[in-house]
Amino acid sequence: MCVLRELYGAGVEKLRIEHNSFTTPSNKKLEIVTISSNYHIEVNPSDVGIHDRVVVQEMIKNVAQVNQLDTSSQKDFKVVVLTEVDRLSRDAQHALRRTMEKYMATCRLILVCNSTSKVIPAIRSRCLGIRVAAPSQEEIAQILHNVCKKEGLNLPSELAKRIAEKSQGNLRRAILMCEACRVQQYPFSADQQVSDPDWELFLRETATMIVQEQSPRRLLEVRGRLYELLTHCIPPDVVMRGLLQELLSNCDGVLKPEVVQSAAHFEHRLQCGQKAIYHLEAFVARFMAIYKRFLEEGIADLF
């Protein structure tokens, strides 16, 4: 946003939400929500799943064909912001690659993604890559101080530091945490509890359950909890990662490599497959088996 503001001035902040519809070659109607100003348009093409190719092409074509109104006072190109490019299908990425070049004159793209691993090289070589590193803990703490100052709050630096630590470089989270703390207790105290989102607590409990008992019955309970998480739209890969973290902190060092391997293995399956629950459950079962074997060997060693 800031870049766009620099480019076009304040006009770019007059936003509107539009529902655009497209028709796929198979005559399926697609609807996608875009956020746009007169100068730019922001869209998350991965919202439409496998039909993203059509959206990408049409969107850019449309934007590029509408010329800038007042070329004397503006830049002579529009900007298309595509978010979550790493979630685009291969097909769409290939389509994007040439479309980018074709409409270079009238429109520029800003692609936003978490990691370039999933962006095909052809696109990477056509873009100016800007790596946006996460802010360091000191930076986060500093920002928190600034925010609190503006809000007229007094933030102990001890607490700011702890929040920064917990946020793991995620500034958005840090600010949210800070606000949650304020609601919990104000004035702040240096040692007050910084709360996690409740699904993380839930996940932690689930991990404890797994470590406590390894049996099919327990697995059934765990499955119920996994379903619970999924109904609340926690993405399965996030669940998998969180579960791994919690399980690792609960198990012996010797087991860690094996557990990590199986987590990576099933997470890959999860990405390839369709029914996330199979793979999550498979991971839990694998962990249970590993852990149980470890315990049994431990008992055997005792005698």
């Binding site: 939400i17 998350n44 995620n170 958005r172 949210l176 949650a180 709360s195 989102p197 739209c233 996030v238």
Partner: peptide
């Protein structure tokens, strides 16, 4: 709708915290 969140961030971070806030 009006915000720039993608659904994942929205549901894993924003919504739970708003519950706390």
């Amino acid at each position: 709708q009006g915000y720039h969140w993608d659904p994942e961030i929205l549901l894993t971070e924003l919504v739970p915290f708003i519950g706390l806030i």
